[in-house]
Amino acid sequence: MNTPRDIQLKIHLAGGHEHTVTLREDAPELLVLFTALSTPESGNRFVQLPLDGGKVACSFQTSQLVSIVSEPPVVMELHKVPELGKVHNAEHPTSATQLRRPRFVVIDDFLSPQEHNELLAFSLISEEQFKAGTITSYDPETRQNLAILGFGESVHSRLVQNRLLIWFPLLAKTFGMPVFPLAMVESQLTAAGDGHYFKVHCDDAPDLPRVLSCVYYLHREPRGFAGGDLRLYDCIETGGSRRPADTFTTVEPVANRLVVFPSEEFHEAMPVRCPSKEFADSRFAVTTWLHRAACPNPGTLFGWGHFRCGVVAPQFAAYQGSGGNKS
């Protein structure tokens, strides 16, 4: 089976508005858009599309569609329109299946320019310490990149952790989850060079209580690589099972950008193309995971050593989350 292509769409809306969006050719939104154009009698529908790497969402009624320019050209089979938010379950036609958008936030300028440069300089002089391995497992079929083991103990890791802890209550609220007591903050520094990738996966596991995954990007300027985008996949949820959909939102690995998402979200690091093949031109990333503590521990210190995050502060204890998403 061929890999679905990315289709760039220029969407013209009533009133002269124009938006450019990239969707995979099997994305349900594509069918919805073309069906709305070809058969307006099929009814007005509400559509939301990710723009600008998922930082912005464009929402409109299909009745506002004027035209679509697609590149490459696409020919759609317009005989079925999937419900956005619900997909048909062929195996269990009576059980409800939900298509859920990925939850994530993008924070640009996460560190100061000097802090970014300091981390980058550290990454560059640490070339010898990068190994083809990870904290948990290494499977070249699934993942190819280089990582520094033990980075989590470094001052550079603490620099990122401490700033992240400032954001933590707000991130939890944004994802609609209660603030949780931290067991640990796990961190690794990776370098993705030419041809490196990490196929679709999620970061949590029954024996790995990661709750939030945070990826901080750094690279030298001008950027010496292409690709390496983070794809966050829509999730198909049926009963108790989950799997990634074919549709996704892309976040570009921009220097000094932090992307945070619940660790259960399916995601993928797309292959990096690095023509120079120089280590210094790699796409570097500090990935940090916040682990939930099974038993709150007020004695544990986090970040630079000032913060007791092993228990939930009283003002947050009553807050149970609103269930809201932000992307």
């Binding site: 802890l165 209550p169 707000l170 609220k173 603030v179 986090f302 000032h306 913060f307 007791r308 995050c309 502060a313 003002q315 947050f316 807050y319």
Partner: peptide
């Protein structure tokens, strides 16, 4: 907004 009084990590 969320309350940061007292500081949630230092009290």
């Amino acid at each position: 907004t969320l309350s940061w009084l007292p500081h949630p990590y230092t009290g």
